[in-house]
Nucleic acid binder design. Sequence first.
DNA 1: TTGAATTTTCAAAATATTCTGAAAGTTTTT
DNA 2: AAAAACTTTCAGAATATTTTGAAAATTCAA
Lengths: 171, 171
Amino acid sequence: MSLMELKEAKDKFIHTWGTLATQWGINRTMAQIHALLLLSAKSMNADEIMADLQISRGNVNMNLRDLMDWGLIYKQLLPGERKEYFIAEKDIWKVAKQIAKERRRREIGPLIEAMEDIKEGIQPDTVEKEEFLKIVNDISKVSVFADNTLTSLLKSEENWLLNNFIKIFNK
Amino acid sequence: MSLMELKEAKDKFIHTWGTLATQWGINRTMAQIHALLLLSAKSMNADEIMADLQISRGNVNMNLRDLMDWGLIYKQLLPGERKEYFIAEKDIWKVAKQIAKERRRREIGPLIEAMEDIKEGIQPDTVEKEEFLKIVNDISKVSVFADNTLTSLLKSEENWLLNNFIKIFNK
DNA sequence: TTGAATTTTCAAAATATTCTGAAAGTTTTT
DNA sequence: AAAAACTTTCAGAATATTTTGAAAATTCAA
């Protein structure tokens, strides 16, 4: 039956999303909730998510919060409803941008800070120290470069890369 | 004393590298071994690494293997030596390239495959199925785009972005 | 060959992360 | 102000990942 086919495909999608997410540092449940909301035409509340994914209230609550921190879902207050409803950002380009932005903040930011920090404590007054500082400096430069590249990619809508993307995306 | 200062800075570097690595999906020990080898002028053998980082032989062996898989260190067979020695790639741009390459392979590749896989099972014969396929397709497109962008960035030495980078890096 | 040196494996232990569910906290209704 | 509806917290339980270390496998010299 056709409806079953879709249900299965959706389940597969949710499951796959959850598995892949662990590969890239996001936890399984967070990814599954995200997938569920991505596929849901309507916004969902905590009880519905609990029932659907068979997970505890605490778990749902915590991961909904994280997903909001990542900017991947929004809270929706429905008139006449006490419960909070959640809806996912459906524009996948925006989703990708948000993920890139967040990962930049979490992964590159601390690296730059740490390297600056280490540089400060050392004077290049011996060959060994110079060699050490060379490496720290190189890492610093690569990280700042990666950070700048990502930032400009994400910011400017006029960016050639983005335009390039839009061309591909809309075809 | 000045030597102590350098020793401390190196330890801080190794420790920091290990901590940050967990943030981006690499395990702590692997990152620490990598950092240790990055800072070491000479190549090191398993016993030296064990002693330096105070970790077990099995752990060292396993992570050296992983680091070689990532293309971040090389095995060096010294003439007249039975033991295997390891040396890190010191060119940080190459290191960054290797990491990007490996992460592309691990993170984007499986995503593209999974989406293609899901698409195959579904015919767009109802509105719901069309809506579902729209999302899967969009993710597919974004992933392929990200994959292509990264690949071209990493491959072409003539790339504007790379040149841009070299300009910054060499100044 | 043999055996010493070295590397690899892998089951069990240690550690880290995630999840549960009931209690506490908050908001809204009556 | 009390109760009902709902959300948040968090200690302990469950699960997953990493590490150890001793045994097995491999390599090399004699």
